[in-house]
Amino acid sequence: MSVQDLHLHIDSVSKNFGGVQALTNVDLKIERGSFVCLLGPSGCGKTTLLRIIAGFENVDSGRLMLDDNDISMMPPHKRGFGMVFQSLALFPHMSVAQNIAYGLKLRGVSASAQRDRVDELLHVIELPNIADRPVSALSGGQRQRVAIARALAIQPPLFLLDEPLSALDAKLRDNMQIELRQLQQKFGVTTILVTHDQHEAMMLADELVVMKNGKVFQSAPPSTVYQRPADSFVADFLGAANIVSAVVSSKGQIELLDRNFDVAVDHPVGTNINVAMRAEHIKLTAEDQAKGNPIGTVEFIRDLGPSTELVIKVCDERLRVRSDNATMSELKLSQKVGVVIDSNALSIFRA
């Protein structure tokens, strides 16, 4: 990332609340115009980090650099960031137009310029005819779009979102994820979203930041995090990988599920390791076609429509397998199958 592309540098930020370490040396470089998702389990520190970026919490150590300017101690109203909260925080006594124009009015923008900006944004969010409607009369999806328009009205340098879609039903949430990404791309605003929804993060993010216990475990594009997780926590948290114990049996080989696999591994012979494998990277064959691959027993079958999910017991491990292969539907419970593992798709971590 060039100096010109670097927009926000979260530089070794730590935060403590009454003896509880909420953040520890968080260091992130956020590119201008990118969409960044902070992802992790409850209590991992992602909302605390977003509140520090917004200015609602102060850092204990470290600093925030926005375009080479230290904003660590700057109050929220001077940062000028756009925010959308989980509650949306729209003003129920105001019309849609008044809600969107609120930030512009506080900044002394003329009434005619406010009207022009509101009209522009209502067309962008594809709700051009609701300016005079009370927000209480809007659907959940419409309120969501109005909240986004209000946050973007002031043309903020950063757009911050704290789980804004979590209260929506599944279908509307999926549609709003697409709309949110399209709006972000139209405006080109650097966006940081807090979510615990893996699908949402994978769908929206240019950069995925996986957190746990106040620390960043991995920061990379979604495909990299999914295919090459930094450790077993990231692998298991994102996409529920199969995590299986193994051992380095010889140079370039590991012993996994009572079989030896050729795998590029740097650990010494005898090292205990954990191996992560995605459900879609495991294939099944008829037992008599196993050709030296492990043999497993079908313990669970679930038809998901476009794909089939199974649980296969191999040795003492239970592996989740997912495939769009139509022949999967022919498998039966307790049936013996060959288990073919793509050794090129394995992620290996020291146990």
Rank of each mutant, 00 (worst) to 15 (best):
D11C: 11
S14C: 12
N16K: 06
G18D: 14
L23P: 01
R32G: 03
S34M: 03
L39S: 09
P41I: 07
F56S: 10
D60G: 13
G62W: 11
H77E: 15
M83K: 05
L88T: 04
L88M: 06
L90D: 04
S95M: 05
V96W: 02
N99F: 12
A101G: 14
Y102W: 13
G108R: 09
D116C: 07
R117T: 14
D119C: 12
H123G: 15
V135E: 04
L138C: 08
S139W: 06
R143T: 10
V146Q: 00
A147R: 01
A149L: 11
R150P: 06
F159T: 02
A167E: 05
L172S: 07
L172R: 06
I178T: 14
D197A: 07
A205K: 05
G214K: 01
Y226N: 06
R228D: 09
D236F: 09
A246Q: 01
V248N: 06
L256P: 03
I273S: 06
N274A: 11
K283D: 11
E287Y: 05
T308P: 01
V314A: 03
D316N: 15
E317H: 11
L319T: 06
R320Y: 04
S329N: 14
S334R: 13
Q335K: 03
A345E: 04
A351V: 02
